[in-house]
Every structure is written in C-alpha cells, then in structure tokens.
C-alpha cells in the first residue's frame, strides 16, 4: 500500500482540480470570460507531456549505453503516453482558441510549432512499427528519439518565445506572471499540474506492465 500513495494522491488532486476548477471564482479578463478555466486542463497536459518525453529520452540514452531492451520498452511507453497528453493539450488549446481567437486551427506560431512537434513524435511511433527486428528497432528508434527531443525543445520553447503570438503570456497579452494571475488561479493550478502529471506517469507504468506481460518470453 505504501507504494501506491501517489496514485491516491493523483485521484484526489484531479477530483479537486475538476471540482474547484469549475467552481472557483476567477478574474474575468475581457473576452476570455470563463474560458480562463482552461488553464487547469490545457497547461498541465503540456507539463505532463514534457515529463513523459523526458522519461522517454532518458531511457533511450540509457538504452544506447547498455543495450538493455527493458529501457527501450520504457522509452516507447513513455513516448506513447506523452503523445496522448500532447494531443490532449493540443485539443484543449484548439477548443479554447475557437472561442477566443475565432478559429480552431490558426496560424499562430505556438499552435503550429506544437503541431509540428507532435508530428515528429508520431513519426517516432510509425518508425517503431516499420522495423520488425527487435534489437534494430530499439537502436534506431532510440537514436530518432534523441533527435526528436533535441528538436522538441527549440520548437516548443525557443521559437515561440522569439516571435509574436496571441497566446497568453507572450508579448503584450496578459498571462502567467505573478502580477497578471490571481491567487485563486494558482491555488488550483499547482495541484492541477501535479495531478495530471501523476496521472500521466500512472498510465505509463500501467502500459509498461502490459508490455512486459506481452513480451515476457524475452524478459523471462
């Protein structure tokens, strides 16, 4: 039981996020109205995705060090769940954009660059499917994974900060700094991102266990 306390914590935090996220009084900023509540769902998805992709790339590097197939399974499962959270982050953002920016798919640099980053990771999943030899697949995809992660950071961190974007927090739009954000938002936001990240890791561990069972002939 002692091992599973964090799963209970994840459930509690997410319950709190969903209940408080919809009930807490938030500051209304012009045409954002109540859509600001998306902060509790959209941003944590990205944090969860980053966590999982980091787990994935670390395992890929470890795989290249020792050629231990177990690390490859970890890397692929983390990337899979990471893509899931990335897609959810993209969808929540696009839905939000529909009502605030007036278009689901806009030419905003943040939206484009995250879409490209997700495509790169989808290519990683396709690459895994295309190679049948298990050792070769592990090696090739580990290398591609490092490549993908090295591009993820400039794509989602550096380029969007260099150009103007409508996204909250960039240039002149109000966003995420202390003076822009009310305390009630932060009271829900921090538990929210902890909760979603824990959920991501939880799904990841489940997937790893499933894969281990599937491939138990290899791992004994």
């Amino acid at each position: 039981m002692a091992k599973h306390w964090w799963k209970a914590l994840a459930v509690l935090l997410l319950l709190y996020t969903i209940i408080a996220g919809f009930l807490v009084k938030i500051p209304v900023i012009e045409n954002n109205e109540q859509s600001t509540r998306n902060l509790f769902f959209h941003v944590p998805m990205w944090i969860s995705m980053y966590t999982l992709f980091t787990i994935s790339v670390v395992n890929s590097i470890l795989y290249l060090g020792k050629y231990d197939l177990r690390k490859d399974i970890l890397a692929s499962c983390a990337a899979n769940v990471g893509v899931l959270f990335g897609v959810m982050g993209f969808v929540t953002g696009s839905v939000w954009a529909t009502y605030t920016w007036g278009g689901t798919l806009t030419s905003d640099p943040k939206q484009i660059s995250t879409a490209v980053a997700l495509l790169i990771y989808l290519a990683y999943l396709v690459l895994r499917m295309s190679v049948t030899d298990i050792d070769k697949r592990a090696r090739v995809s580990a290398i591609y994974n490092i490549f993908a992660f090295a591009l993820l950071i400039p794509l989602t961190y550096i380029i969007p900060r260099m150009v103007d974007s409508l996204h909250p927090g960039s240039a002149t739009s109000p966003g995420f700094r202390g003076k822009d954000t009310s305390g009630t938002l932060m009271m829900v936001f921090y538990p929210a991102f902890t909760g979603w990240t824990l959920l991501g890791v939880w799904i990841y561990t489940l997937r790893v266990r499933y894969k281990r069972l599937e491939l138990k002939n290899i791992f004994k």
Binding site: L122, A123, L127, L151, I159
Partner: peptide
C-alpha cells in the same frame, strides 16, 4: 519521408 517531413518543417 515519414521521418523527415515533420522534422524539416520548421
């Protein structure tokens, strides 16, 4: 092509 096109987009 599958690997390259998303990567070369930026």
């Amino acid at each position: 092509a599958i690997m390259g096109f998303p990567i070369m987009m930026p």
